[in-house]
Nucleic acid binder design. Structure first.
Lengths: 156, 156
DNA sequence: ACTGAAATAAAGGGTCG
DNA sequence: CGACCCTTTATTTCAGT
């Protein structure tokens, strides 16, 4: 991971379909050298994949919410994780420090489907004693672009 | 937005670098017809961009945290939004219903840089009276793939 | 559906620690 | 010797008629 690698990662986060030639020109390298670096970043697990960003509301997902989940005992954690991985409406699930055991980020079609997720699914998972839901009113910013520090981009 | 469009969106979310030909074959369409549909999905704002997914820890971002921010009066909201957009460590910022005014998702290099963001930056923004930080211990799941309902994928 | 242009992948060779 | 980069070429993919 040198400066050149950081610049490639930065560019590919901004445009996941940037061509090798475009990137090559920006970093003063040949196209094959660039292709080889991208290949290594992928196999090293620095770049884990590529995805299209979509407007969730245009796909009928009008509700975004964060759900804090309290689980009464750590012995239920593993089973909870397994269940959560199977639920496509749950985009993120984090084990957190503090009062709640888990914090989930979900996108659902409407308040009804959110309610169903809460009472018919989450609350029925073994060990779950409490859920605390925070509804998103508007999103100011919602990106995944991991910031690359300026010192990593300096020089060439 | 018909079934074919939903299938294209689904595929491009799974692989943002899928070629037009790959997609065309999967949905039984010609490559030019597929290209035209993708172009429309982009111009309609259904697909808003493409991005490489990266492993944040491999870029030196070891801390993920959620920060609830309380702002004493709505008149400070606009200025707060503006400031938040300028801070690259803040990946998400949502106006939420409930006790807090905003919920932020941040990724920082370490606890020190998180502390700096909290006390030197966020707490100094006009109107901010309280921040409540939840540190992520491990992430079970962290994706952006908006789920496309099975009824939208049915048929062909 | 076909074609020219563009992008990617592959092969061969050179330089520097 | 290994890591890195270069140019050239073959194949695949894309864009426009």
């Amino acid at each position: 991971m040198d400066t050149t690698d950081y610049r490639i990662v930065d560019m590919l986060q901004k445009d996941g379909r940037a061509t090798q030639l475009e990137i090559a020109r920006a970093i003063n390298l040949s196209q094959p050298a660039t292709a080889e670096r991208i290949r290594k970043l992928e196999s090293n697990g620095v770049i884990t994949g590529y995805t299209a960003q979509v407007d969730a509301t245009k796909l009928g997902k009008d509700i975004t919410a964060f759900i804090g989940v309290t689980i009464e005992h750590p012995k239920y954690f593993e089973n909870f994780s397994k269940k959560v991985l199977e639920l496509p409406e749950i985009l993120e699930a984090h084990r957190v420090a503090g009062q709640d055991s888990y914090l989930l980020k979900v996108k659902t079609s409407n308040t009804k489907s959110l309610d169903q997720l809460l009472v018919e699914t989450l609350r029925t998972i073994e060990g779950v004693t409490r859920t605390h839901t925070t509804i998103v009113l508007t999103s100011i910013k919602e990106e995944t672009h991991v910031h690359v520090s300026p010192e990593h981009l300096r020089g060439d």
